[in-house]
Design a protein around this nucleic acid. Structure first.
Lengths: 111, 111
DNA sequence: GCGCTTCATCGATTATCGTCGATTCTCGAT
DNA sequence: ATCGAGAATCGACGATAATCGATGAAGCGC
């Protein structure tokens, strides 16, 4: 395919797709949004208590979000503390701009 | 769940999720990006010729993109002309900002 | 009307996803 | 060493998705 000329290169499109896929679920969006608003780390238990789904499900979602580095994790004692990846806060909307053909304002890659 | 306090309301999260889901595929990202760069309408055949997947698959992807109104369609004679929805060009990156907890610069809802 | 082009839809196949309950693992405390 | 709490992993389930080939429907030219 030579859609790459006139569009995005396939490799770039696939990376963006993995980002959007990570947010293609309402529960994950709420988790990211929650962590983004409180800038402080939260334990899995706190997120479970507020998320409306089971613990294993939350853990699964957090793993997906961590794989694309939307969230960062740090083990502390018996609990895992998750926090938003500040870099993504500015770089992810920029990716949306790129897909939509907008001139990227600034912000290069995400870390 | 009362994740709605401190995060996004569930209904809003679900709407955003449907948007991100529409772009959770590299082929669809390339199609959107292609239509966004050429601002002119393209026929399905043109997109197929450049997309690397079959005609029925492209038609399927275009339907998904049209359902969330990222693209608009207009039948002309025997062919269907798809074009980018200009409103989404600015409003979709804003949605990304909202999810990431950024203060939305301006741009209200996408019609 | 007939055929051709263009696109949408159908049916089937295969793969991926969200969720759950149960289990396992890792700590810290006793 | 044992226990208990917190979190990750496993196995399974139904649901959804991506892709294809084939078929169907709409419009144009002859």
């Amino acid at each position: 395919m030579d859609i790459d000329r006139g569009s995005l290169p396939r490799a770039e499109a696939e990376e963006y797709a993995s980002w959007f896929k990570a947010l293609a679920d309402a529960t994950r969006i709420q988790i990211v949004s929650l962590l983004a608003r409180r800038r402080e780390p939260m334990s899995v238990g706190e997120i479970v208590a507020v998320s409306g789904v089971g613990q294993s499900t939350v853990s699964h979602h957090l793993k997906i979000l961590a794989e694309v580095r939307f969230v960062l994790v740090e083990r502390q004692g018996t609990s895992s503390l998750y926090r938003i990846n500040e870099a993504c806060v500015s770089c992810f909307p920029t990716a949306a701009d790129v897909v939509m053909g907008n001139p990227a304002p600034a912000a290069p890659a995400c870390e």
